[in-house]
């Protein structure tokens, strides 16, 4: 199979996120980046498919801090090719990023071979302008399924599982090539030991492929960016069990649990 995994770096929420002086962007002082979680599953799913059906896994990223580590890790895990598009991800919204990636994929082969799967993560925590997978599918005019949690390819098509809610899933049949937004792989992402990543850094290479930068990097203008009020300590509810229960019911309603 011909598998493209699109990897995106997102701010690491373990670090404290602060708003920069412009009141709109994130303060870069303590900002660190990590691979978006669902993308990690997309990579795993691709590797599992390759192990089972053969083929080639290409991981593709835009330029972002710490992205080389992620690419080498992917290579150490078993990806065959790592491509970096030298466009600064931080300046692009999802719409523009989709355009850049679509250009790259079109340049790879038009049309894409029939055993191609393009696998972005289902969503990213900073997808303010929408998700990459449907945007890419539109740009490439390929079929799309999102929130995918299982893929079984067959001649020219694939049976995929989409997660609905509460453990309920639906099975869909998709004509290939297709773009599938991966939520979770068949197995949790594998661990790759540090020694293997180091070996990859020594022996493997990251390809850089030039693409034209998009004319309009962002769709949306931010008015203001801020931190939500921190809770700090629980809001204490007082009164008799009945009174407390009444308050709790309100809270449950507010949180859509009733």
């Amino acid at each position: 199979m011909n598998l493209y995994v699109l990897l995106k770096m997102v701010p690491d929420t373990v670090e404290e996120l602060n708003v920069a002086a412009d009141g709109k962007s994130l303060d870069s002082e303590f900002l660190r980046f990590k691979l978006n979680d669902p993308d990690e599953h997309a990579l795993e799913q691709a590797l599992l498919l390759k192990e089972k059906h053969g083929g080639k896994v290409t991981v593709v990223t835009l330029d972002a801090p710490e992205v080389d580590d992620v690419l080498f890790t992917a290579l150490a895990k078993g990806a065959d090719r790592a491509v970096k598009l030298p466009v600064n991800q931080a300046e692009l919204g999802t719409v523009a990023a989709a355009r850049v990636l679509a250009d790259f994929l079109k340049a790879e082969a038009t049309p894409l071979p029939p055993d191609t799967l393009v696998l972005p993560g289902s969503y990213a925590i900073d997808d303010l302008e929408g998700e990459l997978a449907p945007l890419l599918a539109t740009a490439l005019e390929l079929p799309y399924v999102g929130v995918v949690c299982g893929i079984a390819p067959a001649e020219g098509k694939a049976t995929v599982r989409k997660e609905f809610a509460g453990g309920l899933r639906g099975e869909f049949e998709v004509a290939l090539p297709a773009v599938l937004g991966i939520q979770s792989a068949d197995k949790p992402p594998r661990y790759v030991p540090v020694a293997k990543v180091r070996a990859a850094m020594k022996s493997a290479r990251i390809e850089t492929v030039d693409v034209p930068p998009p004319d309009r990097p962002r769709q949306l203008e931010l008015e203001r960016t801020y931190k939500p009020e921190a809770a700090g300590h629980a809001e204490m509810l007082e009164g008799s069990p009945e009174e407390v229960a009444d308050r709790l019911v309100e809270i449950l309603v507010k949180n859509s649990a009733i």
């Binding site: 949790p188 661990y191 790759v192 030991p193 540090v194 293997k196």
Partner: peptide, 20 residues
């Protein structure tokens, strides 16, 4: 470990140690 045959919780910890 070199085969990546590591249980989930341990894997999380090793990931944390690598990163943080």
């Amino acid at each position: 470990v070199s085969e990546g045959d590591v249980e989930r919780t341990l894997q999380d910890m090793l990931g944390n140690l690598q990163r943080y």
